[in-house]
């Protein structure tokens, strides 16, 4: 088993909104335990509005009002030592970014400064982290890096609006890999792109991961993309991870009824039956049902599901689910 590089313990991150005097709490990430390892691609999947992006913000240690860390811990393994990153100062947080953990954003259109040439944006990111002496070297490195990733060399002389969406996304991915971070976090990096371009982007991510031997945490609702790239997948529902396993296990032996819905909604060759998706829609995170939050939509709902959330039950090596069908769950809490 590889070493853990990013770990959360009972992570709780809520949005606390003040609306005309009344406080509204959105439980976007609720008691999540994650154990993400070195040299793997970890996928986080789930419908829109299940708290994926918030979880990602928390993993990136970018919790800012109105989002609040209500409980739990986040550990990075930096240079062989576990660091509780929630306690770091702003400057310490800043230094970890891009050097240890970097980020690929969702929409690449508006994330690049429109008045700067890409070269200048690259410089800003590099110079903010690299000491004055080694800047020149870092910049040259960036240029060869760009070439290695198969992007045209003169791309750095362009302004963001001169590039196509796919090219811009590749530029942000290259930027994320620039300082050889141990972790790269991707927030739906393929969503805004058309299918053909998507494949190129996924391949680029994979290539970077192989080259750097680091960890990629990929959030996307697209189960097809997950199947293509992830080593392990965590399924998220209403702010909680409900099933986690290797990609083969999740796609081959999905246990949780919700996971099965997600898998079944994927198109298959030769299969002409209607794609089945979960009935109803995900609950509002401001008003999560009691017990297992999936119970109102679950085809195999039992009485206990309506009042209590089960813990994780190990179903095999690297496969666990939090569902009463599997048992009450002794292997780690999900509730």
């Amino acid at each position: 088993m590889q070493n853990t590089v990013l770990r959360t313990e009972q992570l709780k991150a809520f949005y606390v909104l003040d609306q005309f005097g009344a406080q509204k709490v959105v439980k976007a990430v609720n008691e999540v335990d994650l154990d993400i390892r070195e040299n793997e691609v970890y996928g986080i999947a789930g419908e829109s509005g299940c708290g994926k992006t918030t979880l990602l913000k928390a993993l990136y240690n970018a919790i800012e009002p109105p989002l609040r860390l209500v409980g739990g811990k986040i550990y990075y393994r930096v240079n062989g030592k576990d660091v509780d990153v929630t306690t770091l100062s702003a400057e310490e947080k800043r230094k970890l970014r891009w050097e240890f953990i970097s980020y690929v954003p969702q929409g690449s259109m508006s994330v690049l400064n429109p008045v700067l040439k890409l070269k200048e944006t690259y410089q800003d990111f590099i110079f903010s982290h690299v000491s004055r002496q080694s800047r020149e070297e870092a910049l040259n490195l960036a240029k060869s890096h760009i070439a290695e990733l198969g992007l045209p060399r003169n791309v750095l002389d362009a302004y963001p609006h001169q590039l196509s969406g796919g090219m811009r996304q590749r530029v942000t991915i290259a930027l994320a890999a620039l300082l050889k971070p141990r972790i790269i976090i991707g927030d739906e990096p393929t969503t805004a792109l058309d299918v053909v371009v998507q494949r190129g982007v996924v391949q680029l991510l994979k290539a970077i991961q192989v080259k750097l031997q680091n960890t990629i945490v990929l959030v996307t609702h697209d189960m097809g993309v997950q199947a293509n790239i992830a080593d392990r997948v965590g399924i998220m529902y209403a702010g909680k991870i409900v099933e986690e396993g290797t990609t083969e296990k999740i796609y081959g032996e999905a246990f949780h009824p919700y996971t099965r819905y997600l898998i079944n909604s994927l198109p298959k060759f030769g299969d002409k039956t209607m794609r089945e998706s979960a009935p109803g829609s995900p609950p509002s995170l401001a008003n999560v049902p009691p017990g297992c939050p999936f119970h109102p939509r679950c085809p195999r709902v039992m009485e206990i599901c309506q009042s209590q959330m089960p813990g994780f039950t190990t179903l095999g090596a690297d496969h666990k689910a939090a569902c009463w069908l599997a048992g009450e769950g002794k292997n780690g809490k999900a509730s």
Binding site: K93, W98, Y103, S110, P114, F125, F127
Partner: peptide, 14 residues
Amino acid sequence: AENFVQYAKLGGVT
């Protein structure tokens, strides 16, 4: 509130 500012912040730009 623009994305490119948020992105630069997430990128640890000074």
